[in-house]
């Protein structure tokens, strides 16, 4: 993958290979600690999408397409959106109201606390990451098609 002509220079590719995991780690941290520190599902999801975007910009579209299953990303996106709805329906079944916080609250400041807020945070994070990346992916594809035609 490093030898291909696509994407940016070797320097960018090498740096990206190291730093992109730090970006992913930060995104996961923000999502998991959403109920404790500022951040949460939306912010962490955007960071994850930016990490994917970083790979796409550094290595080029086609090299990314080889090891990234886009159909799978679309499926994850739809499944996490459905699971969010499912959590709401589970609230009706277990708590009596839609989207009620039916899990035990736990002690404040603990990582495993606040009932189903962390679960919803994770679902939103995955959903936002996948959809934003897919939007950029599709738009970038349109741009390249145009460039190829002219």
């Amino acid at each position: 993958m490093n030898n291909s002509k696509q994407g940016m220079t070797l320097i960018v590719k090498t740096v990206t290979r190291v730093t992109v995991w730090l970006i992913v780690l930060y995104g996961i941290y923000l999502i998991l600690h959403g109920h404790l520190t500022p951040g949460g599902g939306f912010g962490g999801g955007v960071i994850l999408a930016l990490a994917f975007l970083n790979i796409m910009l550094a290595y080029g579209r086609e090299a990314t397409q080889k090891w990234l299953n886009l159909k799978f990303l679309e499926d994850i996106e739809a499944v996490s959106a459905t699971l969010f709805l499912f959590m709401g329906l589970l609230g009706i079944a277990l708590g009596g109201r839609f989207l009620i916080n039916f899990l035990p609250k736990g002690s404040p400041h603990a990582l495993l606390s606040a009932g189903n807020i962390p679960i919803l945070n994770i679902l939103i994070g995955v959903k936002v990451a996948m959809s934003l990346f897919l939007v950029v992916w599709v738009l970038a594809g349109l741009h390249e098609e145009k460039g190829g035609q002219s």
């Binding site: 959403g34 109920h35 404790l36 520190t37 500022p38 949460g40 599902g41 709401g88 839609f98 989207l99 916080n101 609250k105 736990g106 002690s107 404040p108 400041h109 606390s113 606040a114 009932g115 189903n116 807020i117 919803l120 945070n121």
Partner: peptide
């Protein structure tokens, strides 16, 4: 009421989860 220290999370995912 929600167990979340971050009040923003408690509002957007509990009080106003809809």
């Amino acid at each position: 009421e929600t167990g979340a220290v971050n009040l923003v999370a408690s509002i957007i995912l509990d009080y106003r989860a809809y």
